[in-house]
Amino acid sequence: MTKYRSKIIVKYSVLFSKIFRYARYYPEDIMCILRFFVFLGLFYFSNWRSPNNAEFVNLVYAYFLSVPISEEELSFYKDNLDQGNFSRIQVILSYLMLPIGIEQKLFSRTGIESHHLARVKLVQEILPPAEYILDLGGSCPGSPEGALMVMGYPYNPQQLDIVDLPQEERIYDQRSEEHPQKFITPDNLTKINYIYRSMADLSYFPEHTVDLVWSGQSIEHITEEEADKVIKEVFRVIKPGGSFCLDTPNRQLTKLLVRRGFVHPEHKIEYTPEELIAKIQKAGFIIKKTLAISPMPYSLKTKKFSKLEFINSVGLSENTTQGFSFFIYCMKPDS
């Protein structure tokens, strides 16, 4: 009996320590929950009935988010509740800071999985064709073809050079193997070369040689000073009329998700679209297209990150500022 009681004490001690830690770091979440359930209780008391889904969503916006609701937002949450895609508890918890393990159990999939699908759509439908591609940070564990080809890039380049860190310099990916430095894909005979070094050092490449430089979720892994150098070097190595395409997390949204630090521990900086566009234009590039990846207009408006909106945002939009990540497609002038 004593041993059983000890186990119970340990179990609940751990639970209460987690609750205390959560309350310490996210007191605003605790206050939002308390305020909402107080007003939800008052609704039950005054009406003697459960609110319908439209009323429930209005209550969430009024007493949990403390912002007015638009018809589009009301329709999004109400329709999904009516169809059984969301539960009411999921709507509430989607706005809170939750450990990834709980998030995976609570929702049908994680927002990061949905975001990957949106990025796959970008690679397959938006990136331009090119014969010689330089991919910055594009290695893929288990696939020597690299991330760009694995995501379904629809064209057959003659050569793909992938710049990535050597294994011993990787912090969170040290167990993944280094691929052969030279590799030929069996299906389309693309010649793939690996150059193991920091993407901040492109001195290996001669000027005016590359048709397309692709930086997929990598520029945030280097410092702002290194990024300035990279953009300048990319301009040097691209042929006149060639393209520079990149995507990166949008700080306007990521700061709502992670209130202390960045969305990945290896990130050195996360940009807003305006900040990065200004850097690229300063280097001499002409902006051809910008897009939002996984647009989240409701989260941006309410200043509260909704994981349900993230999970259901598998697409692209023209309003660049609304994306969890954003995409820039620019070109080097012909002369």
Rank of each mutant, 00 (worst) to 15 (best):
N80A: 05
G146D: 06
H179C: 01
G142N: 03
R197C: 08
C330V: 07
C140P: 06
L134C: 05
F310H: 11
L148Y: 12
R260P: 04
K78D: 09
D82C: 03
K268G: 08
Y153C: 02
P249V: 03
I171S: 03
I30M: 09
T2E: 15
E225M: 05
K301F: 13
Y271I: 04
R170L: 02
T2S: 15
A62D: 11
P99G: 12
G41Q: 14
R170Q: 11
S294N: 07
Y95S: 07
V150W: 02
Q104G: 13
L134V: 10
W214K: 02
F43N: 00
S294Q: 10
F183D: 07
Q217C: 10
Q174K: 15
A118R: 01
I112W: 06
I287D: 12
F235I: 06
E224S: 11
P273C: 05
S218T: 06
S299Q: 06
Y329A: 11
Y77E: 12
K332M: 02
P157E: 02
L189H: 09
L256F: 00
E270I: 01
A54H: 08
G138Y: 02
K304R: 15
N188L: 07
R119K: 13
K282T: 09
K3V: 14
N47C: 10
L165I: 03
L253R: 00
E233K: 05
S143M: 11
N47S: 07
E125Q: 08
L160Y: 06
E270F: 04
P297V: 06
L127V: 04
E125S: 10
K304P: 07
L96I: 06
T248K: 05
K301M: 14
D247P: 08
A283T: 04
Q217F: 07
Q124T: 15
R5C: 13
R21T: 13
K255Y: 02
T223P: 03
Y194T: 04
Q181A: 08
G138T: 01
K268C: 10
Y298W: 07
V258W: 10
N58K: 15
T302M: 06
M331T: 15
G146P: 00
N250G: 00
I238H: 01
K182C: 11
D161Y: 03
R259Y: 05
M149N: 05
Q167W: 10
L93P: 05
L253W: 04
Y77K: 12
F37M: 04
K182E: 12
F310M: 10
R236Q: 07
V91Y: 02
G138P: 01
A292V: 03
F205V: 00
L165F: 02
L93W: 14
C140E: 11
N156I: 08
E275Y: 03
G261A: 13
S176T: 12
C140H: 11
E266Q: 13
Q174H: 12
